[in-house]
Design a protein around this nucleic acid. Structure first.
Lengths: 219, 219
DNA sequence: ATTATCTATAGATCTATAGATAATGC
DNA sequence: ATTATCTATAGATCTATAGATAATGC
């Protein structure tokens, strides 16, 4: 069931010229929101510009005025997604030891409430593996950034003695992100049935149990 | 880089009627192999029947003779994938306690050598989340079967006392499969760089360390 | 007669360009 | 003058049907 993207009836027949009170920024945002939902459901390649235009309530050429090509539209959608991701992470951005893991747990909890957002990522993770996909670099960048955040947090925990020095931090990072991505797929297949937040939190707990050291009481 | 699917030059100009020595079964297999690779790279929806026909070395209508619609072609590809999966698991099919986990570790190792196969699954996992996708039920079935295999193995381990009775077997199953799926994405993004078999084996070890009990020595 | 292939083609798309038109902003 | 929208349309596809033709198998 498409929650978000019923093809908006264009606000009255607009006819030719520029409509009274049209707002470029607002239209752009409407387009990006519609495109994000459609790319999330059907993927980038299988989504037509016409369907995006319809969902955003303008003609296909109206859409092309704001985004001159489909590829530029994707770029816009992905950039917007990154901004939203930043906003969701908030202060959790800079890693402070084990708190990176807590931040991820909070992020997964937060994602529970924004299915279309998660769906967009999963759709991209599926189709942008192909090196020729216009979202390929974005996906690589996204993975790299997430891994670096986790690794640098864990390294910091090792530095201040709260994480075992022999913990394989890079492996832990890769597996942790794999759990996140994998649980998202399962959750999207059955959003009512699966509790991905609880599963991920439980996984995070086992990681800590395995590698956390008691904080030194010095000073 | 497409490893597998260079558009096969059709074996000489074939012209109209039935070619001498044509073999339906062999042609079908050639088609399915080509389609699997293309669906794996570009996804189902974005792959055209013409491209499949070219890769298999016949005309588009020749392809339609063997698979009367694109949807039936997908069904054929997925059925073939399941058969190959069965073959790869072999005797590991029936779960015997902790051995299910070993079987999965072996499967991941095996998958390291068949990138297109893994790619097909990941592509489907991405696009078939959409309930309208013709592969949706297959994906659900695939997940269910995998989870059931793991769960029943772990339950058996609990029954014979080698797994802690309070182990959350269903959660362990979900997280384990999530790790598999997630590592596949990372590996496909960089098949040289990532060692998904080692990562998964390490994860499997931590699961056992956490929940395995020493076998009772009775009898 | 059945089967495996092809050519020709219909009918729907799909992306993008060209150019008209009406509102905004200097 | 610039901007936001539209109509019209070109040129590529894309799936599928109709029907011809040559080999196979009874």
């Amino acid at each position: 069931m498409a929650t978000t993207t019923e093809p908006q009836p264009r606000p009255a027949r607009r006819g030719r010229g520029r409509p009274r009170g049209s707002d470029a920024a607002e239209t752009r945002e409407r387009i990006l929101a519609a495109a994000a939902d459609l790319f999330a459901e059907t993927g980038y390649r299988a989504t037509s510009m016409v369907s995006v235009a319809e969902a955003a309530g303008l003609s296909q050429t109206g859409l092309l005025h704001h985004f001159p090509s489909k590829e530029l539209l994707l770029a816009g959608v992905l950039a917007r997604r990154d901004e939203q991701d930043m906003a969701a992470l908030g202060d959790d951005r800079e890693p402070r030891g084990w708190e990176v893991l807590d931040a991820l747990v909070r992020l997964v909890e937060h994602n529970t409430g924004r299915e279309p957002f998660v769906r967009l990522f999963t759709a991209m993770a599926g189709e942008a593996i192909d090196a020729d996909h216009p979202g390929h670099d974005w996906l690589r960048q996204h993975h790299r950034a997430a891994a670096e955040m986790l690794v640098s947090g864990l390294r910091q925990a090792q530095a201040d003695g709260t994480c075992a020095p022999d913990a394989p931090v890079e492996r832990i990072a890769r597996v942790t992100l794999a759990v996140m991505d994998g649980l998202q797929i399962q959750w999207l297949m059955d959003p009512e049935g699966e509790d991905m937040a609880a599963d991920f939190a439980a996984f995070a707990r086992t990681v800590r149990e395995r590698w956390e050291l008691p904080a030194r009481v010095d000073g």
